[in-house]
Nucleic acid binder design. Structure first.
Lengths: 227, 227
DNA sequence: CTGTATCCGTGTTGATACTG
DNA sequence: CAGTATCAACACGGATACAG
């Protein structure tokens, strides 16, 4: 028998009044932000999060979800009867961490170290689109664009110079992209013709083709740093 | 016999094409962002960084500065002859990480876990001001406000609905605040009268008093989350 | 003073196996 | 599917010693 360590014998904190340090105390531990990212577009189950955060082990995911829940960022909920499964979702405040992701994506993609061939989760795809969306290019355009990607579905809405995304059936969207997240983002990042990707068989577009063609021009990829 | 570990036997990376994950690979290690924060307003020496990032040990600081340099975020420079000391400064791209800090500060300060009584570095003070600055409240006002805080000096400039800050002699500013960072930010966060803090002897204001009074109203503190 | 290079105790991480 | 248990390897933080 050994001494009980209640939960935190010496939790590793920054003792710093700076908001940055506090943010790092809240979500700065390894994996935490990637877990929040997966919850950003709606509730997810344990296994769904795990499958989309490559490399995280089950015990760490458990610990992080507990920590995020204790911090008031994540809430655990049980879906009503027919489903009756447990899901994790962001609290209102957790959802408000979104600008952190946008800033990180915009900044990090300028690094020469970025490797677009690595795994990309559907949520990461949508987050990237939000981060790179250029309101000026959208002008007054309004559209609903659907995505079917690795079994996940989203509808992205462009209206009032804003781009929002939700997990939602894309059947009623103006146009729908289907394909792996990495392939979809490749068309947008590379500013390459959709037809080429379709010919390569890695992507398909249904619905209003002109809308799809216009959509992919709204996300300028940031210039790489000179180094 | 064992393999030589050149420098990084198994560097701990997220193998994820998401910009968020890349940002965390770049600056997600413990201490890294707080080090960048200290460099955000100009070059700093090793000891200055160490003194303003409470708890970081010398060897960790060395490691992090090396890593940040290798990533192209920090540059090492030797000041010309009379000084002839080595300083660390952000690269252009490193400087562009600033929006990440603003987003983190704005989000984290809503946490009930924020403890304003902890240590606050002068750079953190200026970062907080940038994060909380409200362009609408500034309107068309133009002013230069100086800060003398823990041996550090800054000038904050309000113009064109923007607030910028640099390490600079505040002698020529319209008004100058002097005092510890925690006390200065307390007046702004708490929206308390300057006179009270002066009476308590923790702060002093010189120059145009009306400008100082107006200045402190431009940084609305975000509402705490209900939890 | 400005770092750099060790060693060491401890806590965290990650792989695997396992349980309900 | 949703976690828990175990354990080896590693990272962290502190101390100390050392170099320019």
């Amino acid at each position: 028998m050994k001494l009980e360590k209640t939960t935190e014998p010496t939790r590793r904190r920054y003792d710093d009044a700076c908001g940055t340090a506090l943010a790092l105390d809240l979500v700065g531990e390894r994996w935490s932000l990637l877990i929040v990212r997966e919850l950003m577009f709606g509730p997810r189950r344990f296994g769904e999060v795990r499958a989309n955060v490559p490399g995280v082990s089950a015990n760490l995911l458990t610990q992080r979800l507990e920590g995020l829940e204790a911090a008031g960022i994540v809430r655990r909920r049980r879906l009503p009867s027919p489903a009756n499964v447990q899901v994790y979702e962001l609290t209102e405040w957790g959802l408000e961490s979104e600008p952190i992701f946008e800033a990180m994506v915009r900044w990090a993609l300028r690094s020469p170290a970025h490797d677009p061939s690595l795994f990309l989760s559907p949520a990461s795809l949508m987050m990237s689109l939000r981060a790179l969306f250029d309101p000026a290019r959208a002008g007054g355009w309004t559209a609903r664009i659907g995505f079917r990607s690795s079994g996940d579905v989203f509808v992205g809405t462009i209206a009032d110079r804003e781009f929002r995304a939700r997990r939602e059936d894309p059947a009623a969207a103006d146009a729908v992209f289907s394909g792996e997240p990495g392939k979809l983002i490749g068309v947008i990042y590379g500013n390459r013709p959709i037809a080429n990707a379709e010919a390569a068989g890695v992507l398909s577009v249904t619905g209003n083709r002109a809308a799809a063609e216009r959509f992919v021009t709204l996300f300028p990829f940031p210039a790489k740093v000179s180094g």
